[in-house]
């Protein structure tokens, strides 16, 4: 009986450790991703505004405002995720951002817009295609997992 008790406690410890590490990994992963994504956009806001305009949802005017706002939102959320500050709020904002990006990408794909994603501005930056959509779906799923893990970690 005692042996069974120990092993279930041990199993629980392993599970908690796994949750904690997965949570940390996702937080650092998303934090780094957002900061990385924001760097070029902060350095070249006009180019980013043009990329936003290419989604043909916003005109030049709103695209300019988006270019002034979004990169800094990404950076702040990124830093907050890395530091653990206001984690409950920040993981929620992160998920909302990922979801918004997914919607933008899907609508661009449906409308057949032949544009760059504008997500990372990195070498080999991909066009809007099924792979890009899959990538964004994955991010949404992971960001929702992060919210759930955050709840578990905060309550334990």
């Amino acid at each position: 009986m005692a042996r069974q008790g120990i092993s279930s406690r041990e199993a629980q410890k392993v599970k908690n450790r796994l949750i904690k590490w997965t949570y940390l990994l996702l937080r650092i992963g998303f934090g780094s991703l957002l900061i990385y994504a924001s760097i070029y956009k902060i350095g070249s806001p006009f180019e980013f505004a043009e990329a936003v305009e290419n989604y043909r949802i916003f005109g030049t005017d709103l695209s300019l405002w988006t270019a002034v706002f979004i990169p800094y939102l990404e950076a702040i959320i990124g830093f907050a995720l890395l530091s653990g500050l206001w984690s409950e709020t920040v993981v929620l904002l992160n998920a909302v951002l990922m979801f918004l990006f997914l919607i933008l990408v899907i609508q661009a794909y449906i409308r057949g817009l032949d544009i760059r994603c504008g997500c990372f501005f990195a070498e080999g930056e991909s066009r809007i295609g099924l792979l890009k959509i899959f990538e964004n779906v994955l991010f949404v799923v992971l960001s929702i997992s992060l919210i759930k893990l955050n709840k578990i970690v905060k309550h334990s």
Binding site: D114, I115, F121, E123, I128
Partner: peptide, 18 residues
């Protein structure tokens, strides 16, 4: 070479080494 960017999805630029 830090990055190579093309102006649209219709053009592709591949490099053998950066």
């Amino acid at each position: 070479i830090s990055y190579i960017r093309t102006s649209c999805g219709c053009s592709v630029a591949d490099i053998d080494k950066n």
